[in-house]
Structures are given as C-alpha cells and as structure tokens.
Amino acid sequence: MSFIQTDTYALRGYECDANGLLSIPALMNFMQESANRNVIDYGIGINDLAQRGYGWMLMRFGLRMHQYPHYGQHIRVITYPTFVEKYFIHRDFRVLADDDTLLADARSTWLVFSTEKRSMVPMPDFIRTLTPPADVDSLPKLTLKPDFQAIPVVSTETQSVTVGWFDIDQNQHVNNVSYVQWLLEAMPKEMLQTSELAELDVIFRNESHWPDQLLIRADADDALTFRHRIEQAETSKDVILARSRWR
C-alpha cells in the first residue's frame, strides 16, 4: 500500500519573517512534520526505527521557492516517497496555496543509520519493500555528489555557533532545520533585508551534537549565488555544504 501525505497549515506570526512572509526554517519544519506523518503511515516512523536500533538521517535537500506565502495564509504541504534504493530513499515535497498555485517544491534523499555505531547501513528490508505512489509526477533525483562540494569555501570570515539543547532531535544529533537557519543567519545583512532565497541545495556530511562548537563560512560566486560550509570547530570536518541562490 502507498500513502500520500497532505497537511494544511495556517501561517502564524512566529512562522513568518520580518516582512510577514513564511520563513524558510518554518517551511522546513512543516515539511519535516508532514514527512514524519507519512512515514508513520508506512510503519517506518522514528519510533518504529528506534525499536530496531536505527534512525533516519537527511543526506540531501534541494528547495525551490516560487512564491512566498504570507501571514494568515493557508498552505498545503504534500509529500511522498518516490524511489527506494539499496542505501537511500528519495522523497518529494510540494507546497500549494488555496488556489493550487505552486509556492515551493523540494527533493530530498534520506539514509538509515545504526544508532549504536552512528554509521550508515543498507536500507533494511522492511523499508525496501515500501511502495511509493505510482500516480505522481516525481521530481528528478538529487545527485549524490553536487558540483559545488568540490569547490572549497575559503572565506576567512566565520561565525561561530554552539549547538544548544533545543537544536537536537530524537536521534540525538542536530536537526537539519537548525543548520539551515544558522546558514541563513550568517548571510550578509543587506542580502537578508533586500533579497529572498530562491533556491537552496544542501548536502549533509557529518553529524554534530550538543554542545559542539561549529563554524559557518560563505563564499560568493556572484551577487546572488553563495556557497556555504558549516564545519566542526575542533576537527575542521565538514558538517554541511550548501549553495544558495537569491533574487
């Protein structure tokens, strides 16, 4: 049996930015909540995996913002798995207005890890037998190795952040939304005030935990395109790499 999750969210004030538009972290939280509800229907929710010694981890995330909804507006988040492979499962998201205008879409790639060894494992059989919906128009899969990851982010300007208790999730590592919020907060002040995010492409490389110290860097490819890196302050290991495009 296959499942498509559809949830309606009314945008509250604390989910909007200084311009009264839906914030990217709030949108990602909506997407994550809808994805969680969808995997529960499939019997592979967080608690289902935890009982077997596994956890979900986001590896890739690609977001396109077509139009930003505003405070008080209702949006629909639709999500479903698209492809199941030996090591990865792919998931699409679509965000619609009341009149079915496409506000945003996103692609994601997830893996399963051992909570004991904290390392990736092949997709267990009880997940690999999952049946994605057949009557959907799936977005193309994200590449496992995006081109921007091969270009060093060498900016000497850094911002530091200490992982807080409320940044970690049930898998005992930093939630992906916290990383994106930190990445966006580190953007130049003028960019945040005068532009809006159009696209975001992220690859998650390593876990971080409470209370790790992280460093955030960004390099500009041009006036509206940036590459980002979040690294462990102590080891210099990549935590995430990303590219953002603005308009």
Rank of each mutant, 00 (worst) to 15 (best):
Q159Y: 14
Q159K: 14
S160I: 03
S160M: 12
S160H: 12
V161I: 13
T162P: 02
T162V: 11
V163C: 11
V163Q: 10
W165S: 10
W165N: 10
D167Q: 14
D167L: 10
I168P: 07
I168K: 02
I168C: 11
N171W: 07
N171E: 04
N171S: 05
N171C: 02
Q172C: 13
H173L: 10
H173Q: 08
V174K: 07
N175M: 09
N175F: 11
N175W: 08
N176P: 08
N176C: 13
V177W: 05
V177T: 13
V177H: 02
Y179N: 02
L183K: 08
L184V: 05
E185V: 02
A186V: 06
A186E: 01
A186N: 08
M187D: 06
M187K: 08
M187F: 08
P188R: 01
P188E: 03
P188N: 01
K189R: 13
E190L: 09
E190N: 13
E190C: 07
M191V: 10
L192A: 12
Q193K: 13
Q193A: 15
Q193Y: 11
T194D: 09
T194H: 13
T194A: 11
S195K: 12
A198V: 14
A198S: 15
E199I: 09
E199H: 14
L200G: 03
L200N: 03
L200V: 05
D201G: 08
D201C: 04
D201I: 09
V202S: 06
V202Y: 02
V202A: 08
I203C: 13
I203G: 12
I203V: 14
F204A: 05
F204Q: 07
N206R: 14
E207S: 09
S208E: 00
S208R: 00
S208D: 00
S208N: 02
H209W: 14
H209S: 14
W210F: 14
W210V: 07
W210C: 07
W210T: 11
P211W: 05
D212T: 01
D212W: 02
Q213E: 10
Q213V: 04
Q213Y: 00
L214P: 00
L215G: 03
L215K: 03
L215C: 09
I216E: 04
I216R: 04
I216V: 13
R217Y: 08
R217I: 01
R217A: 08
A218I: 13
A218Y: 12
A218H: 15
A218V: 12
D219G: 05
A220D: 06
A220F: 09
A220H: 09
A220Q: 10
A220Y: 07
D221S: 09
D222R: 00
D222M: 00
L224T: 04
L224D: 01
T225V: 11
T225R: 03
F226S: 00
R227P: 00
R227A: 01
R227S: 04
H228G: 00
R229T: 03
I230F: 03
E231L: 12
Q232A: 10
A233Y: 11
A233Q: 15
A233S: 14
A233M: 13
E234R: 06
T235Y: 09
S236Y: 09
S236C: 12
K237F: 12
K237N: 15
D238Q: 15
A242I: 06
R243W: 00
R243P: 00
S244D: 06
S244Q: 04
S244F: 02
R245Y: 01
W246T: 07
W246G: 02
W246H: 05
W246R: 02
